[in-house]
Design a protein around this nucleic acid. Structure first.
Length: 478
RNA sequence: GGCGCGGUGGCCGAGUAGUUAGGCAGUGGUCUGCAAAACCAUUUACGCCGGUGCAAAUCCGGUCCGUGCCUCCA
């Protein structure tokens, strides 16, 4: 497959470095609050990437981290659970939001069983080990408030800082450094380790005779967890565009300082932001949404997944309730298609459909082209329209289900989860057919309304009635 | 200021020179007991200015607008 690489600024062919599997590391959530829908969009991208790799015949290993120790988690833990010990408060907070995060992930169709999740707080030893190595190699120095990475030393060793983006030290950040309370040697030096401040959770750490009890910096955790789980170099590193600099740049520096092999990850894939009202979500604009907001409005979380997939990951998608409603409608159409597996019928064969088994293969091929999800969905809609126009015959059901399985494996839209209706509902349909035969339209319409209230829609065709799942009742107010 | 990205019909969103993208929504019609679905028709767009082409949404220059990073924000 091909994928755009921020390192090379072009679309590269993805071949497994180890010849067997593609190893993917995704920067995960900071578990201090509900993830907003932009976060989830990033993870939908990462999930779809892994699905595409797997569908194109290569084994995929996918690791995602939890940032469960940083400024935000510490602050929120103090706010919410100030009565607890700092460490206990941190754990209580991050476990709480970790659970919510996993629920959100599943709800938007991300296959968490195919990923390995790691926590920063469970890798403190390894982080200290790496910091020790960097210090011994002359790439890190101890300052008043912690340990810093020296970009100067890194450059001196012959490596480039700024592989992902051209880093320029602007006048504004120059000005900032002079005011900076931190004891840094240069503007872009970043913290590997921070000494404990009052009421903060901390771990013991002694380095070169200094007592540095404290906690790790943000960047070091990803360096440690990625290579720890996947080895180094690994194949693909994902994240939102905002992580390009400084986070990913710093990861590269930390992980390659003193190494002969200058490669940390072969390919960096960055997804663009999801915009709301044409802008990036931010607290100051008050336009942050979470999955909870979407669910409370009666939308299906998978409609949000579809909305994300409708845009290419390298372009800014626009979130609005109107767009979400369009996506919800599109999802219902796909579910109506999926429902046909439960209602095969004997009719004249229609040869106009594409071979069912080719559909997942075709989708996989489209997605293999730099994860072209909009084109994949356009293809699926086209095929879906063709399939809806015919009837699934009994001897086609197995192939049809296999097709749905293939589509679900790639897009995670849960089409296979469309359940059969109950025997009671089937009886009602039969009763309605009898009423229609008697031209008892009143009874017929009553039954149709009753089924609609149960979430089952009906459509009368020359060859008989077809049912389909109804979406949530029109949630949007214009 | 430095480094990027984008401006397509009511809303999304494909499209790197010449044949209807597609989706959602709207309108009229066919069909239907009524619906739904489907089908037909309809709305024919490409920020603005200029340039190069027989021909430009598509190439070049300029310009306006929006947006992102340069701040431990996906």
């Amino acid at each position: 497959m091909k994928l755009y690489n921020t390192l090379t600024k072009k679309t590269d062919d993805m071949l497994p470095l180890d010849g067997k599997s593609i190893r993917i590391y995704s920067c995960g959530p900071t578990v201090y609050d509900h993830s907003h829908i932009g976060n989830l969009g990033s993870f939908i991208f990462a999930d779809t990437l892994r699905r595409t790799v797997a569908a194109n015949g290569v084994k995929a290993r996918h690791v995602m981290n939890f940032t469960d120790i940083d400024d935000k988690t510490i602050r929120r833990a103090q706010e919410n659970y100030g009565d607890l010990e700092p460490m206990a408060a941190l754990i209580k907070l991050t476990e709480e939001y970790g659970r919510i995060f996993m629920a959100d992930m599943k709800a938007v169709g991300n296959d968490v069983t195919a990923m390995t999740f790691t926590k920063a707080t469970e890798h403190i030893d390894q982080m200290q080990g790496l910091i020790r190595e960097l210090h011994e190699g002359g790439f890190a120095y101890v300052a008043d408030d912690g340990v810093y990475f020296s970009i100067k030393a890194y450059k001196k060793s012959g490596k480039k800082y700024g592989q992902l983006s051209e880093v320029t030290v602007s006048s504004t950040s120059q000005a900032r450094i002079s005011n900076d309370e931190y004891d840094k040697e240069s503007a872009h030096d970043f913290a590997l380790w921070k000494k404990q401040k009052p009421a903060e959770p901390a771990w013991d750490f002694e380095l070169a005779g200094h007592d540095l009890r404290g906690r790790p910096g943000w960047h070091i955790e990803c360096s440690v967890m990625s290579s720890g789980e996947l080895g180094q170099p690994f194949d693909i590193h994902t994240g939102g565009v905002d992580l390009t600099f400084p986070h990913h740049e710093n990861e590269i520096a930390q992980s390659t300082a003193g190494h002969d092999d200058p490669l940390y990850a072969k390919l960096f894939a960055h997804n663009e932001h999801l915009l709301v009202d044409g802008r990036k979500m931010s607290k100051s604009l008050g336009n942050i949404y979470t999955l909870k907001d979407i669910q409370e409005k009666g939308f299906d979380p998978l409609a949000f997944r579809l909305l994300v997939l409708q845009a290419h990951y390298r372009s800014q998608a626009h979130f609005s309730w109107e767009n979400l409603e369009a996506a919800q409608n599109r999802l219902q159409d796909l579910r109506a298609l999926a429902a046909l597996r439960w209602q095969p019928r004997k009719v004249a064969h229609d040869s106009g459909t594409e071979a069912l088994r080719d559909i997942p293969d075709e989708l996989a091929a489209i997605l293999a082209d730099d994860l072209d999800t909009p084109r994949a969905l356009a293809y699926l809609s086209r095929v879906s329209a063709q399939l809806l126009a015919v009837h699934i015959e009994e001897d086609m059901v197995d192939h049809f289900v296999a097709m749905l399985q293939g589509v679900d494996a790639l897009l995670g839209l849960g089409l296979l989860d469309v359940k059969d209706i109950t025997s009671g509902q089937k009886k009602l349909i039969a009763e309605r057919e009898a009423a229609r035969a008697d031209k008892d339209w009143k009874r017929s319409d009553e039954i149709r309304d009753e089924l609609a209230s149960q979430g089952v829609g009906l459509s009368d065709h020359p060859h008989g009635v077809i049912w389909f799942p109804l979406g949530p009742s029109r949630p949007v107010q214009k």
